[in-house]
Design a protein around this nucleic acid. Structure first.
Length: 861
RNA sequence: GCCCGGGUGGUGGAACUGGUAGACACGCAGGACUUAAAAUCCUGUGAACAUUGUGUUCGUGCGGGUUCAAGUCCCGCCCCGGGUACCA
């Protein structure tokens, strides 16, 4: 009887589901291992063949770790809130919850057919109110915390308030947007509103007025990682900069820890690089320049050593000093320039970076060391959002400053010996300072230190570290997301009481902004809050926040919920968190490097600081699965009509073949095209494997005879390679390893239990359905996933002899079979005495003979 | 521009710390079985030259180098993919 994959695969999928074979239970007696996949956003088009690639790899690894005796947590769920469902709802009027549920159902059917060993009892859906209740609760934690730079962690806002009451903010070192200082008396005298406003400058979840990315098409603000090339990542719509009051999360407080943590985790270098660049740490100095009129311009520079090379100053057009220092004569020009820059979209600005623009304010600043008069310009190459929004321009060392100086005919004084600034700036960190008074003769690195020292002792600045990363904009003017659990009393935000969570998403008539441009939640009829009664009809109580959370809120902590997914009273129990956390192995796409993967590290650190989890990093090991392209090398997309559906592949070849084939395509981390024909190879392998257990007539035929030395060698070679390959996530070479073994066993017509039983266990990770059936044909009653991974017995691998490749001058000429226990000298002698050697020696005596026992022989003539 | 990956047969890819380049597959060619096809099995398959087996030369993007020995290490380039970009 030939192997019937459809029948067999359905049978075992049913068995696993009915017996809850992969149910994970907390068991302190067993070591745990947590394998996590990035959960999918259930889109309307279902899974294509590229999606399960990572899931297959993680499933193989999960099964492998189970065989090694670990208690494995391998869950799955859905990232169910998001823009596409809402856009669809706007078009069709269908409730996004309904379409999302339908999509989830379809995803589940597709996933079930692939034979994953997920514990479905732990499924999470971010749009489920039992889940987002806790997302809202975590938002509450962020709202009620501030970051203490002295203890280097988040602390309760109550601590801060009591500090304010007794000392004001004088001895507070916090991550804050508060610039003014106040005393205890000041604080106690402030109105409630004023106090609330100040606290917002400290809270980790805070409301502030800031320039944000506004996408008019989507009708919402976007975080920096959701904007690519000046357009929205979803939809590709134009983005403009707009000043708005917004909820944000103070991720910048964690910039240094997010950087430091990278050194403790086993993630790919490219991913770490992306995050490092995104965080963008730079060391330098904050320096004050006085204008002639007595105003102070503060600049950030990474090259304080070049301060004698400053020939002008530049402010961002939005800089608050611009209006104060502009002379009457220049007012018109400056106003025109500001008007021009505010008209330009983000895309225009980015695409015209070579165009030099700017305007002179008429004001002059004084170089604090040289006393030189420095004209002050405004230009939009200086960004309001970075550093202080002002720079000291050093045209000899900075190309942008050079271009500007060149355009406006400003001097370009060199400050490094031998510097040639006629064609452009030279920004080398090597070199010796010149024309720089007390810095003359010093190499750059020492000069930087010296300059900072002088700046500090003069009292005009200090050493400073800046980060490119911005705080994360958190509110979205959209419907399909978690409501932010905030209401407004006396004009300032307050947290909705814990017992009123979840703050459920209300029903509304349509999913569009109101006529006044308010977010869709404004349409809800019962969207006011009463601290005792909860939600009440509008007109009663206090208004509730109208924005919702971004797509990444729910995914920032889902890995924690899986640990205790059905807990009704906590986000997860302490016991479960301590046992299962952190994630041991995480797999997902690299496109989440600057979004999800930063946010989930950030939330983990906050929860650690507040004592809820005992680990600093959420995932110890992470690999990125590559993309599977269509056969034509293009991206697989409905638009190109080149999508391959796993359902079709499974119908034609089976789930085991799909799993093997996806792995066989190449290394997990690489992008590679789908290859329809290639699947024949793995199908053939499965049939060959099946035939090892059956005779020519298709009847089961397993022998209890003793295995031969060669058969044992095939088996143990395979066990060894399988273990090595799996440990280094080389799933593709495992497949060829299986093929080699089956080919060898087929050649020797091996049907011996002693060989087939352990081999079935190996194969069960990649091809669980056929393995499960074969396991039962071998007479086993339990699932093969409860078996033990076979150990390597080196005795069977030991070779008696080695076919030595013999090279002359590095060129391989012939091989020579020699016993393994020969010494170097004996090998050399044997080679030299061999008649074939004479031909290549041409009568000469060899200069040198290199012998690496067990490896090679190389004769140098 | 800067920072990461990556370039190996007709194709996907192997070669873990320098040690027989091309494992394992796909494809292709030839053959066996068959009335025929499918399925299965066998043989061959980097290129060129030569050929009786054997052999010789070249060959891992290009050019150099280190080494007894380089796909692997070093230097300089080219191409492809990704990230990032007036970040001072």
């Amino acid at each position: 009887m030939e192997y019937n994959f459809t029948e067999n695969e359905t049978k075992w999928q049913k068995y696993w589901a009915e017996n809850k074979t992969f149910k994970a239970e907390l068991n302190l007696d067993k070591p745990k291992y947590y394998v996590l996949d990035m959960f999918p956003y259930p889109s309307g088009s279902g899974l294509h063949v590229g999606h399960p690639l990572g899931y297959i790899a993680s499933d193989i690894y999960s099964r492998y770790m189970r065989l090694k005796g670990f208690n494995v947590l391998h869950p799955m769920g859905y990232d169910a809130f998001g823009l596409p469902a809402e856009q669809y709802a706007i078009q069709t009027g269908q409730h996004p919850a309904k379409t999302t549920e339908e999509n989830i159902k379809r995803y589940r059917e597709q996933l079930d057919k692939i034979g994953f060993s997920f514990d479905w009892d732990r499924q999470v859906k971010t749009a489920d109110s039992n889940y987002y209740k806790w997302t809202q609760w975590i938002f509450g934690l962020l709202f009620e915390s501030w970051y203490n730079n002295k203890t280097n962690k988040a602390e309760s806002i109550e601590n801060l308030i009591s500090h304010f009451k007794t000392e004001g903010n004088l001895n507070v070192d916090a991550a804050t947007s508060q610039t003014n200082s106040f005393t205890a008396d000041d604080w106690n005298g402030f109105t409630e509103k004023k106090q609330a406003d100040i606290l917002l400058n400290y809270r980790l979840a805070f409301l502030s007025e800031a320039v944000v990315n506004w996408c008019p098409e989507l009708g919402t603000v976007l975080a920096n990682d959701e904007v690519k090339d000046g357009k929205s990542e979803r939809g590709g719509y134009a983005v403009i900069q707009k000043k708005m009051t917004q909820w944000s999360l103070r991720i910048t407080a964690y910039a240094q820890r997010l950087l430091d943590g990278l050194e403790t985790i086993d993630w790919s270098d490219s991913l770490k690089d992306i995050q490092t660049n995104w965080i963008g740490r730079s060391e330098g100095a904050l320096v004050e320049f006085k204008t002639e009129s007595g105003e102070t311009i503060e600049v950030f520079t990474t090259r304080p050593d070049t301060i004698f090379g400053v020939s002008f100053m530049v402010l961002a057009p939005e800089h608050e000093l611009v209006s104060k220092i502009t002379t009457d004569a220049q007012k018109e020009e400056i106003a025109e320039y500001i008007e021009y820059t505010s008209r330009r979209s983000e895309r225009d600005r980015l695409s015209e970076t070579k165009k030099v623009t700017g305007a002179f304010t008429g004001a002059y600043a004084i170089n604090p060391f040289s006393g030189d008069k420095l004209p002050v310009y405004i230009a939009d190459y200086v960004l309001a959002g970075y550093g202080t929004g002002a720079v000291m321009a050093v045209p000899s060392g900075d190309q942008r400053d050079w271009d500007f100086a060149n355009h406006f005919s400003l001097p370009i004084p060199p400050v490094i010996e031998g510097q040639d600034v006629s064609e452009g700036a030279e920004d080398s960190k090597e070199g010796i300072l010149c024309n720089s008074d007390f810095l003359n003769g010093l190499p750059v690195k020492k000069a930087i230190k010296r300059a900072i020292h002088e700046i500090e002792s003069k009292g005009i600045g200090k050493k400073q570290i800046n980060y490119k990363m911005r705080d994360a904009v958190f509110g979205r003017q959209r419907y399909w997301g978690e409501p932010i659990p905030i209401y407004y009393e006396k004009g300032f935000p307050k947290l909705i009481n814990k017992e009123h969570l979840p703050l459920a998403l209300p029903e509304i008539d349509k999913y569009l902004p109101t006529e006044d441009g308010e977010p869709p939640l404004k349409r809800a009829e019962k969207w006011n809050y009463h601290p005792e009664k909860g939600l009440v009809a509008n007109g009663e109580g206090f208004p509730v926040e109208l924005t919702t959370m971004p797509g990444w809120a729910g995914s920032s902590w889902y890995f924690l919920r899986y640990m205790d997914a059905n807990n009704p009273s906590e986000f997860a129990s302490k016991e479960a968190l301590d046992y299962w956390g952190p994630v041991d192995f995480y797999i997902g796409g690299a496109e989440h490097a600057t979004g999800h993967l930063l946010y989930f590290r950030f939330w983990t650190k906050v929860l650690k600081d507040l004592g809820f989890v005992n680990f600093e990093e959420p995932a110890k090991k992470l690999i990125n699965q590559g993309m599977i392209q269509a056969e034509d090398g293009q991206k697989m997309s409905k638009r190109y009509g080149n999508v391959v559906n796993p359902d079709d592949v499974i119908a034609a070849h089976g789930a085991d073949a799909l799993r093997l084939h996806e792995m066989f395509l190449g290394p997990i981390e690489m992008h590679k095209p789908w290859n329809t024909k290639g699947i024949e190879g793995v199908s053939k392998f499965l049939r060959k494997l099946w035939r090892l257990f059956h005779d020519a007539n298709g009847n089961l035929a397993i022998s209890d005879d003793k295995a031969t030395k060669d058969e044992l060698k095939s088996l143990h070679k395979s066990i060894k390679k399988f273990r090595e390959d799996t440990e280094r996530f080389s799933f593709n070479t495992s497949v060829s390893n299986f093929m080699v073994a089956v080919n060898e066993l087929t050649d020797s017509k091996c049907n011996k239990r002693e060989i087939l039983e352990p081999f079935t266990i190996l194969v069960s990770c990649h091809a669980p359905h056929i393995a499960e059936e074969l396991w039962h044909l071998l007479g086993k009653k339990e699932s093969v996933s409860f078996a033990t991974l076979p150990a390597v017995n080196e005795v069977y691998l030991k070779e008696d002899s080695k076919k030595y490749p013999v090279s002359f001058n590095g060129k391989m000429r012939f091989t020579l079979d020699l016993p393994m226990d020969m010494t170097k000298d004996e090998i050399e002698k044997a080679v030299m005495e061999n008649e074939q050697s004479q031909k290549y020696l041409e009568g000469k005596t060899p200069k040198k003979v290199i012998v690496v026992p067990g490896k090679i022989v190389n004769v140098v003539v």
